Computed example of a mutant assay.
Amino acid sequence: MGAEQLFNDGVHVILVEPEKEGNIGSVARAMKNFGFKHLIMVNPLVSMGEEAKNYAVHATDILAGAELVPFPCEEEAAKVVVLKTLFKRFDIVAGTSCKIFKERTLHRIPVEMDAFLADLSRIANLQGTRIALVFGNERTGLMNYALNQVDQLVTIPTSDAYPSLNLAHAVTICLYELSKLMSTTVPRGEISLAPKLKQDVLLDYFDELVSLTRTPPHKVEKTRRAFKSMVARSRVSSRELFLLLGVFRMAVDLAKAGRACIDGAP
Rank of each mutant, 00 (worst) to 15 (best):
L193T: 02
D263V: 04
S234P: 11
L153F: 03
R139W: 10
R225F: 05
I131Q: 11
E4R: 12
D9H: 10
H169A: 12
E208Q: 12
G22E: 11
L126N: 04
L212K: 12
A52S: 14
R214L: 14
R139L: 12
L178T: 01
E21S: 12
L83F: 02
A232M: 07
E138V: 04
G2D: 15
Q149W: 07
A66E: 07
R259E: 00
L142K: 11
L6F: 09
L167P: 00
A260V: 03
N125F: 10
D253F: 01
I173L: 15
E76S: 09
D91K: 08
K53M: 08
G258R: 15
L153C: 04
P44K: 12
L244D: 00
M41Y: 02
A59S: 04
L181S: 07
T215K: 04
I262P: 00
E138M: 14
R259T: 01
Y162L: 08
A260I: 02
P44Q: 14
K79V: 00
K219R: 13
V16I: 14
N54W: 04
E4A: 09
V252K: 15
A30T: 08
A59N: 02
K222S: 08
L241R: 01
I123E: 06
Y145A: 02
E19P: 00
M182G: 08
Q127I: 12
F242L: 13
R233T: 00
P266L: 13
F90A: 04
F34R: 10
P163R: 11
V134M: 14
D160Y: 02
E76P: 08
D151G: 09
A77E: 08
N54L: 09
E240K: 01
A232L: 08
D114N: 09
A28N: 07
G35M: 07
L181D: 12
K196F: 06
G246C: 02
R29T: 13
A146F: 04
I24A: 13
L6I: 06
D253S: 11
Y162N: 06
L254V: 01
V111D: 07
H38C: 04
I156N: 11
T105Q: 15
L68N: 00
V247D: 07
I40W: 07
N33D: 11
K20N: 08
S238E: 14
N43H: 15
A194D: 09
L178K: 13
P195R: 03
K99L: 03
E177I: 00
R104P: 02
V134E: 03
L6Y: 06
R239W: 06
D9C: 05
V69L: 02
S183P: 14
L45V: 01
K102H: 13
L241S: 04
I131L: 15
V42L: 12
L243Q: 05
V236T: 04
K222T: 11
E21C: 03
E221I: 11
T213A: 12
H12T: 05
L178E: 05
E51H: 14
